Amino acid sequence: MDMIADILLIAGALGAGLYCFVLARRLARFNDLETGVGGAVAVLSAQVDDLTRTLQGAQKTAGDSTDILEDLTGRAEDVAKRLELLVASMHDLPDAMAPAEPTEPVFRRHPTERDLAG
């Protein structure tokens, strides 16, 4: 009976050793940098780095655009204030400077040759 138990124990140990060997090979292929998940992780890591750089560039560009827009908005507000002052000062002009419009239509007859001869 001891011998059967020893044989079963050896067989179990060999089976566990074979199982560990197969798992080790699968894990090596799984973590392979060329074709396995390790390669996918490496590619994704590179893409994350690229996206981070692109995002930083976009944030810098947006910040620069914001500064330019704030400057242009300030200049536009200054110009709007000056225009308001100019329009307000036009109301102070006397009415004599405005062209006089005739209140009634004026009809004039052009002289003809007969009118000039007679």
Rank of each mutant, 00 (worst) to 15 (best):
M1F: 04
D2V: 00
M3T: 04
I4C: 01
I4L: 08
D6Q: 04
D6H: 00
I7S: 04
L8F: 00
G12V: 02
G12F: 02
A13T: 00
V22F: 07
L23C: 12
R25G: 06
R25C: 09
L27Y: 05
A28D: 15
A28C: 09
A28F: 06
A28N: 11
R29K: 14
R29I: 05
F30E: 14
L33A: 15
E34S: 09
E34P: 00
T35Y: 06
G36M: 04
G38T: 03
G38C: 13
G38S: 11
V41M: 10
V41P: 04
V43H: 14
S45T: 15
V48F: 04
L51Y: 03
T52M: 09
R53L: 11
L55T: 06
G57V: 02
G57R: 11
Q59P: 00
Q59N: 10
K60M: 13
T61N: 13
A62S: 12
A62L: 13
S65D: 12
E70I: 08
E70L: 14
L72Y: 00
R75M: 09
E77N: 11
D78T: 05
V79P: 00
R82D: 05
L83K: 02
L83F: 01
E84C: 02
H91L: 12
P94Y: 02
D95G: 14
D95Q: 12
E101M: 11
T103G: 03
T103Y: 00
V106E: 12
F107T: 10
R109A: 15
L116R: 15
A117T: 14
